[in-house]
């Protein structure tokens, strides 16, 4: 269960999902301060009293295109400390670029299906609220498949590719070790190899965006 009680603003135009999300967050002990149905109201509510975290749908009225993303960008510009989780009905890594531009953390991009895996979802919220980056595994899979025939990525061993994927999802070494059932030292070794092979800087605070930027080419 959560490490701290977060105050959250929820933006989702489907009443059904809004209530589902609210009840999940409620049960986890978070405070759902406001739930709204469109991007403009979201901005207004956040400006009135900034929450710890904003969870927003990509598509909302009136245009049903990318209102949520635009609201997220506006919030990020005005309140860099508010964590933002963007939920999407389907994944498109093209959306990712607009989210990751000019930001180093405190951002999450998840498929709506993930919400059903309640424990994982809540953990993702905590990570984003504390400045981490969370990217849906599906998006990472797409990114990896795009670059797989490129030179440097082809040089990675299958295990290193797995580690790279988990890194891109925003997981820390401990979580990766747990997931792959290996020691944290082994993960550190893999990470070192990956960064050497891809010629990336391993600054721990920026590594997610470094990896994602690399993958997006």
């Amino acid at each position: 269960m959560p490490t701290r009680r977060l105050s959250i603003v929820l933006a989702e135009d489907s009443l059904l999902l809004r209530e589902g999300l609210a009840s999940i967050l409620d049960r986890a002990g978070h405070e759902v301060r406001d739930s709204v149905g469109d991007g403009d109201t979201l901005l207004a509510v956040v400006r009135k009293e900034p929450p710890d975290l904003v969870i927003t749908d990509v598509r909302m009225p009136p245009g049903h295109s990318d209102e949520g993303l635009r609201a997220a960008a506006a919030i990020r510009a005005e309140f860099p400390t508010i964590g933002i989780v963007v939920l999407s009905q389907y994944v498109a890594d093209a959306y990712l670029s607009s989210l990751l531009e000019s930001t180093t953390g405190g951002i999450g991009y998840l498929l709506k299906d993930r919400v059903g895996h309640v424990a994982e979802f809540l953990e993702s919220l905590d990570r984003v609220a504390s400045g981490g980056t969370v990217v849906d595994p599906e998006v990472v899979r797409q990114l990896l498949s795009r670059r797989r025939n490129d030179g440097p990525l082809a040089a990675l061993t299958p295990r290193e590719l797995e580690v790279l994927g988990l890194m891109a999802e925003g997981r820390v070494n401990g979580a990766i070790a747990q997931q792959l059932v290996v020691s944290e030292a082994a993960v550190r070794k893999h990470v070192g190899n990956i960064f050497a092979k891809l010629q990336l800087d391993d600054g721990l605070d920026r590594r997610v965006s470094a990896v994602l930027t690399y993958l997006r080419g």
Partner: peptide
């Protein structure tokens, strides 16, 4: 349909807990 299915997975996720 899609929203309802997502809603369903949320409810089932809560039930699991």
């Amino acid at each position: 349909v899609q929203q309802r299915l997502v809603g369903l997975t949320m409810t089932l996720g809560l039930a699991e807990l």
